[in-house]
């Protein structure tokens, strides 16, 4: 049995600014990290591995340097890595990304289960998981909160449906996206990392993905285009309070009374 965990390298900082003169996006530093929600996907894979003796693969798409995030996957328990890297993948939107990753997953033999984190911290869309499932034509359940049972036929999971809680079975092959809190993730282990130095990492270009339709990847395969990026303008008139802490507290309380948020008697 093979489990594939989809992971992503994201910027370590959320601070991005646009230079008002040049229009250039500026990030503070260029550090990257593993998308934090992917740790829960890895931990879920480990729990399923204990019961099924499955092998855990990690897959990502990105530049060559994204190999680091696969190694991070190894330190969390994965045993084989797959990196989709090719300039032909550049400029991909959700649809083209999902298609590329699905095509990468097709290169791995006998995949039964694909696990994704609930979303990434840089895109925050939560769309790639369900779209991969659709491309592969397999069922999926998003926002899995609890792994109720697992065997060699499939999973039983608890899913949050906003006003309802649903416990449902899902046969392999299938895809799940997992909520934060499904399991407590373990810290990366040095022992695992050390053992991982010989684990294979496969570099996949578009040409190496058997069956991949080049019209469906990168910019060509992306129906959406970013027409422009901009810093939001604020037309709010801000009243900046002056004075000591007590004076400012008095002004705020008065304002709350004026707005009837605090009753006169309160």
């Amino acid at each position: 049995m093979n489990i594939v965990v989809c992971i992503k390298q994201v910027p370590a900082t959320q601070k991005v600014n646009v230079d008002p003169v040049t229009g250039v996006l500026k990030r503070d530093g260029v550090e990257t990290k593993l998308n934090p929600y992917d740790c829960y996907a890895m931990e879920t894979a480990l729990h399923i591995q204990k019961k099924t003796k499955a092998k855990i693969h990690v897959i990502t798409m990105g530049p060559n340097s994204a190999v680091d995030v696969l190694k991070e996957g190894f330190s969390l328990g994965a045993e084989e890595g797959w990196l989709l890297t090719d300039r032909k993948f550049a400029g991909a939107d959700v649809l083209a990304t999902s298609y590329a990753i699905a095509s990468g997953i097709r290169q791995i033999k006998d995949v039964d289960l694909i696990i994704c984190g609930k979303q990434t911290t840089d895109g925050d869309t939560a769309q790639v998981g369900p779209e991969i499932a659709e491309v592969l034509n397999i069922p999926h359940i998003s926002w899995v909160q609890e792994l109720v049972d697992v065997d060699d036929k499939g999973l039983t999971v608890r899913q949050d449906l906003s006003e309802l809680d649903m416990i449902a079975t899902l046969p392999y092959p299938c895809l799940i996206t997992v909520e934060k809190g499904i399991f407590q993730p373990n810290l990366p282990s040095y022992r695992k990392k050390k053992a991982a130095k010989d684990y294979p990492i496969h570099f996949l270009t578009a040409d190496q993905c058997e069956g991949l339709d080049q019209k469906r990847i990168g910019l060509s395969g992306s129906p959406t285009q970013v027409e422009r990026i901009f810093t939001p303008e604020h037309d709010v008139k801000t009243m900046k309070l002056e004075g000591t802490g007590s004076e400012m507290a008095r002004q705020v309380v008065k304002l709350l009374r004026d707005e009837k948020i605090l009753e006169a008697g309160e």
């Binding site: 996006l25 285009q225 990026i229």
Partner: peptide, 12 residues
Amino acid sequence: AFGGNIMAQILN
């Protein structure tokens, strides 16, 4: 978009 203080205008 991009996790920062940036808005993206997207068309299809």
